[in-house]
């Protein structure tokens, strides 16, 4: 495992810096005593105070988290199945069905889902409609990454398991799932970030009077980026960090291939 070399560290380090420079700005300005986000004026916790008194914003954050968690969970489940089905069973229509939603311009997906929900399904718009809409475009991301993980893998282990009398479920549980776990988790993470960020599809599929975070933020940004938005972004990152650390404590192998036994 000591194959890492200096060049690799350097290159990767630069990329990490690229990823974090804007983030540092976001976090710093959330403590800045100036509405404009232009230069450092002084330290304040006012924006956090304001945030915690903004009921609509908190409700929006809660709604968005519920949507993102449900949509990523559903998309991970369906996407993993789709990835397996494409790889193992070579279902012809699936690659198309999986790729097309990613290729579809957001605004078209938003409008067509809205039309479909209202005029064909006669569904009342709400959290459920947003979750379905988000799942639709997230499934593809998960399926593609799961399939990429499976590609080039030696299929003989699956056959061996079957020959040893394992039921399909046992084969899946004991062999397939541990093998694809990193891809499943990566797919879930991608779905989560896609869902929490989505503005266009959410705008079209949301119901009446339900604040959703990206819409709420877009609304506030119209005038100027108030540091309150920086504050909520900072809190979101903290929450994510916390949850992943907890998960890591629970099982340190979550992002790696299952232990071979």
């Amino acid at each position: 495992m000591k194959r890492t070399n200096l060049t690799l560290w350097l290159a990767a380090g630069l990329v990490y810096i690229f990823l974090y420079v804007p983030l540092v700005i976001v976090v710093i300005y959330s403590f800045n005593d100036s509405r404009l986000n232009a230069e450092w004026v002084g330290f304040t916790l006012d924006w956090y105070y304001k945030l915690f008194n903004n009921q609509e914003m908190l409700l929006a954050a809660r709604n968005s988290l519920i949507i993102a968690v449900s949509a990523s969970l559903l998309a991970t489940l369906l996407g993993t199945m789709a990835g397996l089905a494409i790889h193992r069973y070579r279902i012809r229509v699936l690659p198309f069905l999986v790729f097309a939603p990613i290729a579809m311009p957001e605004i078209l997906l938003g409008v067509s889902l809205l039309l479909f929900f209202l005029q064909i399904l006669n569904l009342t718009l709400g959290l459920v409609s947003i979750i379905i809409a988000h799942t639709t475009f997230c499934v593809g991301f998960v399926a593609i990454i799961v399939r990429a993980r499976l590609q080039g893998m030696d299929d003989s282990i699956f056959e061996a398991a079957r020959d040893l009398g394992a039921t399909p479920w046992q084969t899946f549980r004991l062999i397939t799932l541990p093998l694809i776990m990193p891809a499943v988790v990566a797919g879930a993470l991608m779905s989560f970030t896609l869902s929490i960020d989505d503005f266009v599809i959410t705008f079209f599929t949301k119901g009446i009077g339900e604040p959703i975070l990206p819409i709420q933020i877009y609304t506030m940004i119209k005038i100027a980026v108030t540091p309150e938005i920086n504050a909520i972004s900072t809190l979101f990152m903290l929450l994510t960090l916390l949850l992943i650390i907890i998960a890591n404590r629970l099982d340190s192998g979550i992002l790696q291939e299952g232990k071979k036994s």
């Binding site: 908190l58 409700l59 954050a61 809660r62 988290l65 519920i66 968690v69 969970l73 549980r173 004991l174 799932l177 541990p178 776990m181 499943v184 988790v185 879930a188 929450l239 949850l243 907890i246 998960a247 629970l250 099982d251 192998g253 979550i254 299952g258």
Partner: peptide, 22 residues
């Protein structure tokens, strides 16, 4: 198997945190 159970419990945990905190 262990990790899949963990994944699910992680999401449940997340759900609970969210709903309870706000």
């Amino acid at each position: 198997m262990k990790s899949s159970r963990i994944l699910i419990s992680l999401f449940c945990l997340l759900c609970i945190t969210l709903t309870s905190c706000t």
